[in-house]
Design a protein around this nucleic acid. Sequence first.
DNA 1: ATGGCTCTAACATAGAGA
Length: 262
Amino acid sequence: MRLVTWNVNSIRIRLDNLARLSSEARPDVVCLQETKVDDASFPYDEVRDLGYHHVAVRGQKGYNGVAVLSRQPFEAEHRLDWWGQDDSRHLSVRFPNAFELHVFYVPSGGPTPDPEKNEKFAHKLGFLTEMAQWARNEGIAGRKLAIVGDLNVAPLDNDVWNHQRIKRQVGHTPLECEHMAALKDAGGFTDVGRHFVPAEEFLFTWWGYRHPQSFTKNYGWRLDHVWVTPPLARHLKAHKVESDARTWPRPSDHVPVTVDFQ
DNA sequence: ATGGCTCTAACATAGAGA
């Protein structure tokens, strides 16, 4: 089966791009972040027309929002709150006789990498800390499970285009990278991107809008992740960052990440 | 140090993204 995670930066604006991805990559399951739409206004008919008849959404007006689109049915759906906030940053589903899938949209963290001065950064660190506690307390490492989504941290040196320049910026600070390492350890996770692409090579999933040449100059970051527990890691088959999607008309600043399981 | 650009809400411009 083929799984995709993608921060679409508004599902309603990105429907044509979703249709193109659906046609070209033929994913079985699509996990979305930043849908930016409340559940009543979600474009159910449009995604059903693409073949995704089983849909779980957790959205809100204007901000955040996650969703799972699937060609096959899933059994159960859960929503967890983090940092005491019901703000549409997590949704999970269970595929029968297969695995649990948890979709996350981790807070971006605001501009200043200091939790004393910036409540958004404190929120981000608290969110990542609670994820690690959850992974440990719930025995995640022993379950057949994947966490996917925009984790908003580029954890390794070659997950950004210039480590020395960016290591003081939110999303790539040593403190955030330590929180990611603790989460990875707590769940016994395999970082699927780095399972297939050596840490010596650049690997990016996000190119900002603000620099018009960011994609052509490859000023990228790896913010979007698929992490799997040991029982699921045995089934990994392939991985691809769909970088071409950044050149499509009206692109999201994030591109889809595809993982194949056998 | 700041802004670049894109999206939403809502109707001019401000907030958020990272």
